[in-house]
C-alpha cells in the first residue's frame, strides 16, 4: 500500500493571525446579517438593552453563568430536542407583535399587548439559580416583575385555585411543532401550571429579560415565567395565555411521562427522577458536581407552601 508523506509544515503554511481574526469577524458579521430582522418586522430587536433595578434581597451572590452558555445550551422542545437547536433555530420566532391573554376564573380578563405588559410594574433584576431536571444548573440574572402584580390586576375569583400557562402554538415559528414522520414528542401547545399560591408567591417572576437585555428567542421571548424552586421545565416560555382555573392543569411533561414528572416538580434531592438521581447537579461552567438543595435553595421562602404535603407522593 502506498502512503504518501506530506512535507513538513513551513511558516508559510500557517494562516496569518490577522487573516484568521478577520475571518472570525466576517463570520460574526455574516451571522448578524442573517439574524437581523427585516424592516418593519421586529420593533424590539433581539439583544436590546433593558434597564432594571437589581433586587439584592432576592438575588444570589454568585457569579452568573456566561451569557453565551445560557443562550446556547437550552431545552426548548418547540425548536428541537437537542440543546443547541434553540440557539440555531430560534430566528423563526417573532416576539413582536405579541399578545398575552389573561383570563379564566378572573373578574377582569384582558388581553395584554406585550409592550403594555412590560410597563405594568417596575422591572427588577433577580439573580436566580435554575435547576434542570436533567441534573445541571445555571445562575441567571432575570429581568421581570412578580407574576402576582399581573394576577392581582385581573382579580382571580374565589373559585380559582390554579394558574395555567400556555406557550404559543405556531408550527411556522416553532419548527418542532410540525408533525413528524416518526416518534412522538410532547403534545402542543406546551402547557404548564402552578397552584394559585405558588403563582402569587413573590419569587415567581414574570420574566421579559435576562443579562440586562430583552429575552433572547431561545430563552422564551418575549415573556415567560420563572419559578426558581422548581425544575426548569415548570418555567414555561413564550407565553400566549395565562389562565386562572379551578382544577389542576394537565401539564405537558406530566402527560408525556406521569411517573417521571409530577405536577409539583419542586427541586428535591431526596426524590429521584425514576431513571436518575437528583442528589447532585453540575453548575454549568464548573467541573465538580455539587449537592442539590431542597427547593433549589429557596426552602426558607417556599417550604411553608407545602406544609403537610407529602413531597415524595406529590413529586
Amino acid at each position: 500500500m502506498l502512503i504518501r508523506r506530506a512535507g513538513p509544515f513551513t511558516a508559510n503554511d500557517v494562516t496569518d493571525e490577522t487573516l484568521y481574526l478577520n475571518r472570525r469577524e466576517w463570520m460574526v458579521g455574516a451571522a448578524a446579517l442573517v439574524l437581523m430582522p427585516g424592516e418593519g418586522e421586529a420593533a424590539t430587536p433581539q439583544g436590546q438593552a433593558l434597564t432594571a433595578t437589581r433586587n439584592e434581597a432576592l438575588s444570589l451572590q454568585e457569579t452568573p453563568t456566561k451569557f453565551e452558555a445560557a443562550t446556547t445550551y437550552n431545552n426548548f422542545y418547540e425548536f428541537g430536542v437537542n440543546k443547541e437547536d434553540p440557539a440555531r433555530l430560534a430566528g423563526t420566532l417573532k416576539p413582536r407583535p405579541w399578545a398575552v391573554q389573561v383570563d379564566g376564573l378572573v373578574h377582569k380578563p384582558k388581553t395584554y399587548d406585550i409592550d403594555e405588559l412590560l410597563r405594568l410594574a417596575p422591572l427588577e433584576e433577580r439573580v436566580y439559580s435554575l435547576r434542570c431536571v436533567e441534573g445541571w444548573s445555571m445562575v441567571i440574572p432575570w429581568i421581570g416583575y412578580p407574576l402576582a402584580a399581573l394576577l392581582r390586576r385581573v382579580e382571580p375569583t374565589g373559585k380559582a385555585r390554579y394558574v395555567e400557562f400556555t406557550t404559543l402554538l405556531d408550527p411556522s415559528q416553532f419548527p418542532a411543532q410540525r408533525p413528524s414522520f416518526f416518534g412522538f414528542s410532547l403534545e402542543w401547545p406546551y402547557v404548564e401550571g402552578l397552584r394559585l399560591d405558588e403563582a402569587l408567591h413573590p419569587l415567581t417572576l414574570l420574566t421579559v429579560g435576562m443579562y440586562g437585555r430583552v429575552l433572547p428567542n431561545q430563552n422564551g421571548a418575549p415573556v415567560r415565567v420563572i419559578v426558581p424552586w422548581k425544575y426548569g421545565f415548570k418555567s414555561a416560555k413564550s407565553l400566549v395565555r395565562i389562565r386562572a382555573v379551578a382544577d389542576e392543569p394537565k401539564t405537558s411533561w406530566n402527560r408525556a411521562a406521569p411517573q417521571e414528572y409530577g405536577f409539583y416538580s419542586n427541586v428535591n434531592p431526596a426524590v429521584d427522577h425514576p431513571r436518575w438521581s437528583q442528589a447532585t447537579e453540575r453548575r454549568i461552567g464548573e467541573f465538580r458536581r455539587r449537592p442539590t438543595l431542597p427547593f433549589n435553595g429557596y426552602g426558607d421562602q417556599v417550604a411553608s407552601l407545602y406544609a403537610g404535603l407529602d413531597l415524595k407522593k406529590h413529586y
Binding site: Y77, V81, E134, F182, G183, F184, L186, A256, R275, W276
Partner: peptide
C-alpha cells in the same frame, strides 16, 4: 432507550 428523554428519536 432507558436514558433517553421523551421526544428523542435516535434511540429507536
Amino acid at each position: 432507550l432507558w436514558l433517553a428523554k421523551v421526544g428523542r428519536r435516535d434511540q429507536y
